[in-house]
Design a protein around this nucleic acid. Structure first.
Lengths: 209, 209
DNA sequence: ATAGTTTCGGAACGATCGTTCTATAAGGGG
DNA sequence: CCCCTTATAGAACGATCGTTCCGAAACTAT
């Protein structure tokens, strides 16, 4: 009965997400969304409700199609160390496709710009952080078992938390980096540190304080 | 001869900086600056030139009064490890004063929100990153000497780069953290990793790939 | 006291913001 | 065929944006 939607509606969320991701929330106008998506103003309002809700939907979409698969690698790849390696490779590949300076991680951008102003966004960010951290933890647990070293559960928890926050720094700076090797070097160094932690004798040489 | 400026002009940059720092660039209006600083619109325009220039001045001011002293600790504190410890303590103390969730690091906020849209801001961010990284490098060099271990210059460079980017993640997430211990734990874990790196025997147990 | 100079407070500008509304176009069921 | 529903494009809304402008206030040097 009704007039059929134009095909542009199929990719509405995907295209809107890209605009918010690269330009940020406040610097993106509804007109930007109209132009970038090819969907009429009313279409955007009927689909999302408003700019704030559109942003929220794009953020959820990002978690589903971008960070979801990345965290799945951490959870599913049997070799724990290899899982962490592939997690970084996943984002590095994305940045290779997008070109540098890249868009970084949508969530990393949102943490500083929007999360402090919106409870709903803050909850989404917290949920992501928890999922990522638990992914790192799962991967580290497997790595510890495979390396037969003696990291305690609380040490694994700490290291997972550290990796979560540290990689946030990487995806932030990816927005200003001009060379892919800068990202690759960080990932390599992170893995070297994890591997050092997994060395069975690390306890003997703890610092004195 | 002329009418004297009100005393509010003395703290103009300081107060304007705080607004940009906590609210971000696009979410801050010139009216917000007027209200927060107590300086008339014309005063702000005669002082800075415009909103963009005001932001640039505040960013430079932030580097002078906030990150400058922090990086000075890395460069001046004789004990290299202690220098890194005090660098983190410096920001943790600031967040203790400000309360949580805190403002994070102004520059960390700017990297994601503004740097991709402004060459001038991007240059300021790059300059900061270089200074911080070279501070970490100087502190690490002293720490290596004091621990009598065998880290190569390029390994020191890598570790300094890693710490620079990783701490960026910390100051980003500080905007959403509700417990000071979350920040303290990250700092502690970072130092544990550095200390592990400084163990003289770490080379023997390198991973196989 | 008066004239001169600069800041102050706030009105006013055009542009753009997010949002709402309206008239038109496009198909499916009677 | 006509009607009904819904999406479209775009006009229009009030609010707010960054910026400019102006009269009144405030202090000094004469």
């Amino acid at each position: 009965m009704p007039r059929p939607r134009l095909k542009s509606r199929e990719n509405l969320v995907q295209n809107a997400m890209w605009v918010f991701w690269t330009k940020g929330y406040y610097a993106t106008s509804v007109d930007d969304l109209v132009k970038a998506t090819g969907v009429a103003r009313s279409g955007i309002y009927s689909e999302f409700g408003g700019k704030a809700e559109a942003f929220q939907s794009c953020l959820a979409h990002y978690r589903k199609v971008v960070t979801g698969p990345a965290i799945a690698i951490l959870n599913d790849q049997e070799d724990g160390l290899q899982a962490i390696r592939q997690y970084f490779s996943y984002f590095i590949d994305k940045h290779r496709q997008h070109g540098l300076p890249g868009p970084g991680c949508f969530i990393a951008n949102v943490v500083t710009e929007v999360a402090p102003h919106s409870e709903a966004v803050d909850r989404e960010v917290s949920a992501h952080k928890a999922k990522l951290q638990q992914g790192f933890k799962a991967a580290l647990r497997r790595a510890v078992g495979q390396a037969r070293c003696d990291l305690s559960p609380s040490e694994i928890e700490s290291l997972a938390n550290f990796l979560t926050i540290a990689s946030q720094g990487l995806w932030s700076y990816a927005r200003t980096m001009h060379e892919l090797t800068e990202i690759e070097n960080f990932a390599r160094d992170a893995l070297v540190l994890v591997e050092a932690k997994l060395s069975p004798i690390q306890e003997e040489y703890r610092s004195d304080r």
